[in-house]
């Protein structure tokens, strides 16, 4: 059952005494693929199926709509602000947490995940409570003619909240696994702080960083619940792509809704492709980065809270 593609895993697929009978193998594979087909492939196909229901012409026309363009632009702008900010935050947080010991570190690591665990609706609500006209800063903002909620800044803030752990989450396990020896050596040899960072640390973590950025970008572009609470839904002005999907859907314009949805789906597929590429890169050249190359576990799975590398945890136990 070897696939034509090159196997990247070290373990040979056939395992003699520890392999299941062919029937069991076949059955399990069928169950797994059937389950995935039902829950993953079909929804995917449904998006494109519905988008192209009235033919390619209608599909293209739906995407060339003025409001659709405005939504795409807003989504891109939001991601362009959110991703760099969270990247800087992720780097700073990972540097502090992974390279140093300090009191309250484990609490901090737990807190980082808070935006993931909180319902997106709640994350939108908190900004309304703060910056809404009836909120704490509302009157002051109004007096100074600053619009946050129901404008681009509000959308950016809500997206920042939802996506802020992503880069940090990818980098922390990776940088912990790599330890501090290389940086220390560089410092001892006279490198300045930033030099050490750019010459030593960054090359070591660049793939993990890229991975975090890809995820952060995907989430930033796809956020719905939080943005929906703070957007105001002004056509052509504060509608992001996901909100535009909802609006078109409510307008009974299914082709339009699924056309924009298909763009988001393509983005998701692209994200998955890029992510696979990054994983493949990190596995392909483990030796390049000198010391510890992260394995699959240390890279962190595509989950908000990947398992910590074993070495780090066991070290902490001592």
């Amino acid at each position: 059952m070897t696939s034509a593609s090159i196997s990247t895993l070290p373990r040979p697929p056939a395992q003699r005494a520890t392999a299941e009978p062919a029937l069991v193998r076949w059955l399990l594979t069928a169950v797994a693929i059937g389950f995935l087909a039902l829950f993953l492939f079909l929804p995917l196909a449904a998006v494109f199926g519905q988008a192209l229901e009235r033919g390619l012409g209608a599909y293209v026309a739906a995407l060339r709509d003025h409001d659709a363009w405005a939504a795409i632009r807003l989504t891109l702008i939001t991601a362009a602000i959110v991703v760099p900010l969270n990247l800087v935050f992720g780097l700073a947080m990972a540097w502090a947490v992974a390279k140093f010991e300090f009191r309250g570190k484990s609490v901090l690591i737990t807190l980082i995940d808070l935006p993931f665990a909180v319902s997106p609706v709640v994350s939108g609500l908190i900004y309304v409570l703060l910056f809404g006209l009836q909120g704490w800063f509302g009157p002051w903002l109004k007096a100074h003619d600053i619009q946050i909620i129901f404008a681009v800044p509000g959308i950016v803030l809500a997206t920042l909240f939802v996506t802020c752990p992503l880069v940090a989450r990818e980098l922390i396990p990776l940088m912990q696994a790599q330890g501090t020896e290389e940086e220390e050596a560089a410092v001892v040899l006279g490198a300045r702080g930033w030099q050490t960072f750019f010459r030593v640390t960054l090359p070591n973590i660049k793939w993990g960083l890229l991975y975090g950025v890809i995820l952060c970008n995907a989430r930033a572009m796809g956020e719905f619940g939080a943005v929906s609470v703070v957007s105001g839904h002004i056509r052509g002005l504060t509608n992001t792509m996901t909100l535009h999907v909802e609006i078109l859907y409510n307008e009974y314009n299914f082709v339009g809704a699924f056309a924009v949805a298909s763009l988001l789906t393509l983005l998701a597929l692209l994200t998955l492709g890029a992510k696979s590429l990054v994983e493949w890169q990190t596995r392909r050249r483990p030796a390049e980065s000198g010391s510890a190359a992260p394995d699959a576990a240390a890279m962190g799975p595509l989950t908000p809270v990947p398992l910590q590398p074993v070495s780090e945890k066991t070290r902490n136990e001592h």
Binding site: G132, L133, Q134, G135, F150, H233, I234, R235, I247
Partner: peptide
């Protein structure tokens, strides 16, 4: 003229919260 549409209560809520 820009348009914003949604459930009536939700829209009123947005104006109350500062949608201009």
């Amino acid at each position: 003229i820009r348009q914003s549409h949604g459930g009536s209560g939700k829209q009123a809520r947005a104006v109350i919260d500062g949608l201009e």
